[in-house]
Computed example of a mutant assay.
Amino acid sequence: MNLTAPDLPHVSVLTPRGRGAVAVIELYGNLDRLEQAARAEGLVWFEARNGRSLADQSLNRIVFGCWGDEELVVCRTDEQRVEVQCHGGRFAVARILADAKAAGATEVRWTEASPDFRADYLDALSRSVTERAAGFLLHQLSLGENFWRAEQLQQLDVDNLAECRCWQKFGSRLTQPWDVVVGGPPNVGKSSLINRLVGYERAIVFNQPGTTRDVVSVETAIDGWPVSLSDTAGQRGTADELEARGIEQAVKALQRADLKIVAIDQSQPCDEFTHELIQRFPAALLVLHKADLPRHESWSSTAIEDALSVSSKTDEGVRELINAISARLVPELPSEHVVYPVTLRQEESLNAEFNRRGLD
């Protein structure tokens, strides 16, 4: 994959994040100068089996050699560009990057090295974790490869720009999970609820109130959307300093969440603190947990008409809760013709056009 590089020498990792069998690193610049600088600094550099330097290798020919004790192959794809194909482990990649930077190359993300917005979509696809999200990204690739160029954005009317921005958050969540936070009083079964939603026991479950002190998160998929589910410390009045800090973190997590779930134990009486918590987050999805137990009579006089009854033990209401989460996160889908940003660079291009026109 050839990228349109800046004038300065650079080094970029072309393969996606994570460990793999093979990693591909692009080295761009005056190859003779980079190698001379490396030798002058006593750095490890590529040693070809044929004895030639990188600058002397034939174009588009695979060459075997080593970088220190790492055996690998390289391919010189144009006069100033070489692809290094090495072991995909992070230490092998880090070693080559460090040597190249010490020789004078600047490390850049491969999308930053290319003005082609197609690279943005390919990078987003590499970070997508669900099939449904990847499908939307592929559709955006077919629609928007040339959409984000400044001259193209300048030709759009205000309504088209506004529609594009309307789906900005949806586009960002195709690569970054929706943030769903479960709050509520202590010992209402928040951890058990998350375990049931995720499908395995990821959170700590213990019948002692106040067990969860930190925000504990786990990533999953709900209706095909990437979701981060967070368990929080039980919210209540407390004199314990450590627990109070955990509750403060829990409240902050709830405040910034894409979706708040407030879970209560329906078998226990509705005390004043629980009622205040429900009132504090009126937009939250309210869950009456432990539906396998009789509901305490005090809840009959509380405004819980829209609450979902759920039992982690019997699975009652779990499917309905999953459907409700999906409907809250994505109440509607974009039409097939609309283009929206899916990367930070695309968001910046859209915002720059709004600023250029003096629009909010």
Rank of each mutant, 00 (worst) to 15 (best):
N2K: 01
P9Q: 10
L14I: 14
V22Y: 03
A23F: 11
V24T: 08
I25T: 03
R33C: 01
Q36A: 15
E41N: 08
L43G: 03
V44D: 03
F46V: 05
A48Y: 11
R49L: 13
R49D: 15
R49E: 14
A55L: 08
S58C: 04
N60L: 15
E71A: 04
E71F: 04
T77Q: 04
D78C: 11
E79F: 06
V84S: 05
Q85K: 07
C86V: 14
C86W: 06
H87D: 04
G88E: 05
G89S: 11
R90H: 12
L97N: 11
K101N: 07
A103D: 05
G104D: 09
E112H: 06
D116G: 02
L122M: 03
D123R: 02
L125G: 02
A133E: 03
A134R: 06
L138E: 15
S142E: 14
Q154C: 04
Q155W: 12
V158H: 01
D159W: 12
K169P: 00
G171Y: 12
R173K: 02
L174F: 02
Q176H: 04
W178Q: 00
D179M: 11
D179G: 01
G183Q: 01
G184D: 03
N187R: 07
N187V: 14
V188W: 05
G189K: 02
K190L: 13
S192R: 02
N195F: 08
G199C: 02
A203S: 10
V205R: 00
N207P: 14
Q208I: 06
P209K: 08
P209Q: 09
R213W: 05
E219W: 08
T220C: 09
D223Q: 07
G224L: 06
V227R: 03
S228H: 08
L229Y: 12
S230H: 11
A233Y: 08
A233E: 12
A239F: 11
E248P: 03
Q249V: 07
A250L: 10
A253I: 14
A257I: 09
K260H: 07
I261P: 00
I264V: 15
C270M: 15
D271V: 09
T274G: 00
I278W: 00
F281M: 01
P282S: 09
P282I: 14
P282N: 08
A284S: 09
A284N: 03
L285Y: 12
L285F: 11
R295G: 00
H296L: 09
E297D: 15
S298A: 04
S298F: 13
S300L: 10
S301C: 04
T302A: 01
T302N: 00
I304R: 07
A307H: 03
A307G: 02
V310M: 00
S311A: 13
S312K: 00
G317T: 07
I322S: 03
A327C: 09
A327I: 08
P331K: 04
E332R: 12
P334A: 13
V338G: 03
V339G: 05
T343I: 15
L344M: 11
E348P: 01
R357A: 01
R357G: 04
G358I: 15
G358N: 12
L359Q: 13
